[in-house]
């Protein structure tokens, strides 16, 4: 259902969409029934001359049914929704499938930067690839990410992946995703982070294995020389070391 509004491009985008559909069906049913009943009552019991209202206290057993039966049905729906919600949550947030590649995501006022673990799959080694604003990932590959913030609370959101996770200064927050469709997708910051909040955009570029290999090759060599210095990168327009909050860049719990 959600695909009509926005593409789904990760393995869990479907399960989240299905849960949205389940909830929409259940609450949609309740909404229609309740609104329908409300409007019917308003029409049926409108004021008419010579027809007084009835005296009903609502304390009688046979009347309380009208509340207790829907009450039980609501509980049944709630249980169904809770089971669905917990199942999806466990899959997306609570468990992580084994990593095939790792990337570190830096959030700061007001840019995203990324540290791909490079060919050796280990972060903070010489072959790491650093980029600003663009996250290059290989399709059908499980990525683990480490999310850190250099200054204030941000939120790393890729709507097409149905991925959202706050970045909190002082913490490294782990998560994962596995992209299923090559293409370019938006990265949003979804937590108010100051005057540049609405320009804090980025892109995920999901690449086929061949495209990705070409990118690694092209990006690899010039970056490795600078990788020892975490604050330097090729985009001169944004110097991380002088950005507000850069003093937190190395904070790790």
């Amino acid at each position: 259902m959600l695909e009509r509004f926005l593409t789904g491009a990760s393995t869990y985008s479907q399960s989240i969409d299905h849960l949205i559909f389940l909830i929409a069906a259940l609450v949609g049913f309740w909404l229609v029934v309740a609104e329908g009943f409300l409007f019917w009552l308003i029409f049926r019991f409108r004021h008419r001359e010579g027809q007084p209202s009835q005296y009903i206290t609502g304390e009688e057993k046979h009347l309380k049914r009208w509340i207790t039966i829907p009450h039980m049905l609501v509980i049944a729906c709630d249980v169904l929704i809770i089971v669905g919600a917990v199942k999806v949550w466990m899959n997306v947030k609570q468990t992580m499938p084994p990593a095939e590649q790792t990337v570190r995501v830096y959030a700061q006022q007001w840019a995203w930067s990324f540290q791909d673990a490079g060919p050796d799959g280990m972060l903070d080694t010489g072959d790491d690839i650093r980029t600003v604003g663009e996250l290059h990932v290989k399709v059908n590959t499980t990525y683990h990410f480490e999310l850190v913030s250099r200054d204030v609370v941000h939120s790393f959101c890729v709507p097409s992946f149905r991925l959202k996770q706050d970045a909190v200064p002082g913490r490294t927050i782990a998560g994962w995703f596995r992209a299923t469709r090559p293409g370019t997708y938006d990265i949003q910051c979804t937590q108010m982070c100051g005057i540049g909040h609405s320009v804090m955009a980025g892109r995920v570029i999901v690449e086929t294995p061949e495209q990705h290999a070409r990118w690694v090759q092209a990006a690899g060599s010039p970056y490795t020389a600078q990788a020892a210095n975490p604050a330097s990168h090729t985009h001169a327009s944004l110097d991380l070391s002088t950005a507000p909050g850069a003093e937190f860049a190395e904070v790790r719990p």
């Binding site: 989240i16 949205i20 919600a85 999806v88 949550w89 939120s155």
Partner: peptide
């Protein structure tokens, strides 16, 4: 519902 809030949050 936590599972759908991932998408709808904020």
């Amino acid at each position: 519902a936590s599972g759908t809030d991932i998408y709808f949050h904020d």
